[in-house]
């Protein structure tokens, strides 16, 4: 752990120190004295710590992110490891470019965006001997790294996995293929998790929602019965009506309801104990046949449900 901290500052310069040698096709030595010193320092630094360029791309057409060009310019990606941190802004071609990332560290790579959430990644930047890198490239499919080439100098390899917050750091998730792009640059793709919703929905009031309420529906039905039934009964044929009334009396439920329509809600209210004990037949209640009362009773029972 300790060396990384001390290397931090030297590493930072190396990042740019490497730049001219890697990016310039034809570096133009300006003056002879200075060029020699430059090359000397660059090689000296390379032996202590190496850096690499990492490009984190956004997926082009993801179901959750159909057009990454619409992401706000404030979107940024960070790489953090103990003692190290890098930040890169979103570029015009939907990528985050870290020009010089220190090797020999395991980074937590995160994309911070106002509108979308991204999967946190574990990004291992390792220094490997060129031969080992080439050999491993064939075997390990997960990292998806390309062969390092035939150089004798140690090269940098980048491997990435999804990581799960709150889990063991060694517990790697699905691998994210990192592809070598040109000299000393690695590219990988960020994964979109979904959009972000900042606002709470306010329950809106509408007349329709009131009528969707089952209690309101029940009371409406009972209200319809309350007002409608007497009208129906009145409009009936006298014969039909008589028949209907007859049937009402036979209906065992009706006795209860009829009782309820009477004086009290207690179905036993009309039970004549003395008559029962005396063995006489219970008195038929005429008022129970009354359509008006009947309807009311039905309504009341329905309401009680």
């Amino acid at each position: 752990m300790l060396p990384i901290r001390t290397l931090l500052q030297t590493a930072l310069l190396v990042g740019a120190g490497i730049l001219p040698s890697s990016a310039v096709a034809d570096p133009n030595p300006s003056s002879s004295t200075t060029t020699t010193t430059t090359t000397k320092t660059t090689t000296a630094r390379q032996s202590t710590s190496q850096t690499t360029k990492i490009i984190l791309r956004l997926p082009n057409a993801h179901p959750y992110l159909p057009n990454p060009h619409l992401l706000p310019a404030s979107t940024l990606a960070t790489l953090s490891a103990p003692g190290l941190s890098f930040a890169a802004p979103l570029s015009a071609d939907n990528a985050f470019v870290f020009p010089a990332v220190n090797a020999s560290a395991s980074y937590l790579a995160e994309v911070h965006c106002q509108t979308h959430a991204f999967v946190p990644l574990r990004l291992d930047v390792e220094v490997v001997a060129a031969a080992a890198a080439g050999k491993k490239a064939g075997g390990a499919g997960e990292g998806g790294e390309a062969a390092g080439g035939g150089k004798a100098a140690p090269t940098v390899r980048v491997r990435a996995w999804e990581t799960i917050r709150g889990n063991d750091w060694g517990n790697k998730g699905e691998g994210v293929p990192a592809v070598r792009e040109g000299e000393g640059a690695w590219a990988l793709e960020a994964r979109v998790l979904g959009g972000k919703w900042y606002f709470m929905e306010r329950s809106t009031f509408s007349v329709l929602s009131v009528f969707k309420n089952p209690i309101i529906l029940l009371s409406l039905i009972s209200m319809a019965l309350f007002f409608g039934m007497p009208k129906l009964v009145e409009n009936m044929d006298p014969e039909l009506r008589a028949e209907w009334e007859e049937r009402q009396k036979e209906n065992p439920m009706n006795a209860i309801m009829g009782a309820a329509s009477g004086q009290g809600a207690n179905p036993m209210g009309s039970f004549d104990m003395a008559a029962f004990l005396a063995g006489s037949k219970p008195r038929t209640e005429e008022s129970s046949g009354n359509g008006n009362g009947n309807g009311k009773a039905k309504g009341e029972v329905k309401k009680k449900r």
Binding site: Q9, T10, L12, L13, V14, G15, A16, G17, L19, H69, A73, A88, P89, L90, S91, A92, V97, P99, A100
Partner: peptide
Amino acid sequence: WDAISGRSRFQSALGGTGG
């Protein structure tokens, strides 16, 4: 920076201590 969107076009650093 892209003049309209504000996104990064390229970046470059000198590196070095205190440059």
